[in-house]
Design a protein around this nucleic acid. Sequence first.
DNA 1: AATAGTTATGCAAACGTTTGCATGAATTGA
DNA 2: TCAATTCATGCAAACGTTTGCATAACTATT
Lengths: 342, 342
Amino acid sequence: MTNINKTPTLKIIAEIIGCSASTVSRALQDHPGISQDTKKRICEMAKKMDYSPDSVARSLQKKSTTTIGVIVPEIRHDFFSSAIDGIEDRAYQAGYTIIVSKSNEDYNREVLNTRSLTSNRVAGIIASVAQTTRDGQHFLAIRKRGIPVVLFDRVLEDVDVSKVIVDDYVGAYNSVKHLIDCGCIRIGHLSGPKHLKISNARLRGYKAALENAGIGYDDNLVVTVELDEKHGMEGVRQLLNLENKPDAIFAINDPVAVGAHKEIQSQGYIIPDDISITGFSNNPITEMIEPQLTTVDQHGYKMGQMAAELILDEINSDQVDWAPETRIVETELIIRGSTVKN
Amino acid sequence: MTNINKTPTLKIIAEIIGCSASTVSRALQDHPGISQDTKKRICEMAKKMDYSPDSVARSLQKKSTTTIGVIVPEIRHDFFSSAIDGIEDRAYQAGYTIIVSKSNEDYNREVLNTRSLTSNRVAGIIASVAQTTRDGQHFLAIRKRGIPVVLFDRVLEDVDVSKVIVDDYVGAYNSVKHLIDCGCIRIGHLSGPKHLKISNARLRGYKAALENAGIGYDDNLVVTVELDEKHGMEGVRQLLNLENKPDAIFAINDPVAVGAHKEIQSQGYIIPDDISITGFSNNPITEMIEPQLTTVDQHGYKMGQMAAELILDEINSDQVDWAPETRIVETELIIRGSTVKN
DNA sequence: AATAGTTATGCAAACGTTTGCATGAATTGA
DNA sequence: TCAATTCATGCAAACGTTTGCATAACTATT
């Protein structure tokens, strides 16, 4: 599509007013060296012509953009879209725009994304890494070029950049503590695959809460499952088959909890009267089932905000070597009907 | 944060190789006028230094970017994040990046967003308008400057730009026809506010399907509700209070359907044996409830893809006056347990 | 009236590309 | 051997900004 109306530039305004482009530039910036009269004339004309500065040209000259690059494994996913939302809000407040790209859980595409973003001279990159990403060289290389990098949620342990993570341990601890406070004494746990950091952190939280309450740990009450609904159903069956059944379930995440929820009900138990249950993540589903699920909010939106704040701090710092910083987002226990009668 | 390693540029490579920047530029573009030998030396060096061209500088010189601007009312919302996903995929394939901004359902912010995007010299803008937007001047002005605009889903009727919309009429028709095919003969409709286009289109589809099947239209079976779960519950109560109760419900959207779903079950009716029910949108919730909800997929992802395709066509066209085009996305009926026993 | 100081403005370079044109070297054909 | 042709490369301008420095026109001070 070709341009019909020409976009106004400094030079065009300058010609109309009868001055130089520098004067127009300075007038628009309210530079002290320009007379009130000229300023007024120029500003009026600029407004009349609906002038807006060419950020491309400005970025070239300033050698920096006001754009933040974002890389996520998946866009169409409540947690990530919430995070993007949080990033956008903070960026918008600071006058920045965001370029969103997704890796599709593919390491190679993630590397390509970083190249594209650096090529676009973004002021910084916020990323949550793909499941297939093991190595963080691409992020380190960017950082060495002076572009701040913030990893959030899915971070790489051994990569020395700023990070925003959630405290899974505390989240799990509080969740289990809540079950105990509700009077449950035999709490089962549907745990995740052992190679995942979150599984271990949440399992530790579970154990600590039990110990703190003086409840003995029972190996039979912990079942390891994959992170989806189907496995939640299967896992909980094992627990319901025990002769000494649990009176509560702490599930590693919401899909697993939803699976358990269904299975428990289809076996005729009443939630929360017979068995209480809690999940993790605060997915939208948790509000849609009956009774609604008590869960741990991971605050995707909040994490996005914090990641944006962190990167803006780093961008605006003039320190040559900003030490990477890790910020931890507090989880929040959302108490609903699956643990408390309403 | 300050730069430590300098980013390689054409000039730097030129100095190392001992030629001019133009030669490097041409070599990297595989320009015919450069000798094989020089090309090889230059390309190797560029790779070694991990050179990637400065898109900012290139955009300035070429007077065009490879960035598409996206404006949505809300990011954290399944339909919109799916649409963004679809846009990203197509854009990525074409070598474009996307800038995502949200209006927060606020007309003024939407106008600001368009300014920011044009200032960033995006190649085109894809938008879904805010609820408070009545006037489309801001989009027309952009288009007059030669920047293609594509509106999707929430479009402005009187604004002459390209559009991607869904056929609500057909979607509703098929949904109701399905209920009829399942043997239902007394089909209630939870309709939406009368000033919304979607309400009317879906209502027309409902009526047409009935008429086509020779089923008389009964005013008592249509209840107007707000578009959320709570009103779905309230609305369906009216229908269940009729002495001649419906044997099926077609709800204007999924939240309303979910509300109705809950209410129907809590009154002791069995879905779909006593009453069948269908929604609209294919929100993730629809798969999470028991029985799962038959619904109409609006294909947010597909709409995003189509919007991206449309804008890329327009960007790559050299026609001075590209006639706006409207493309209609076919809805798809997703049949699940709320209408058919499994 | 001459100098110093102030005020308002313009010039030109720079940011990193791309590309039309010019130039010089090498090759070809007679 | 000379002109014509081809080949490889460089020069310089342009894209729209910003900004240090120079300059011109005043104003104030003596």
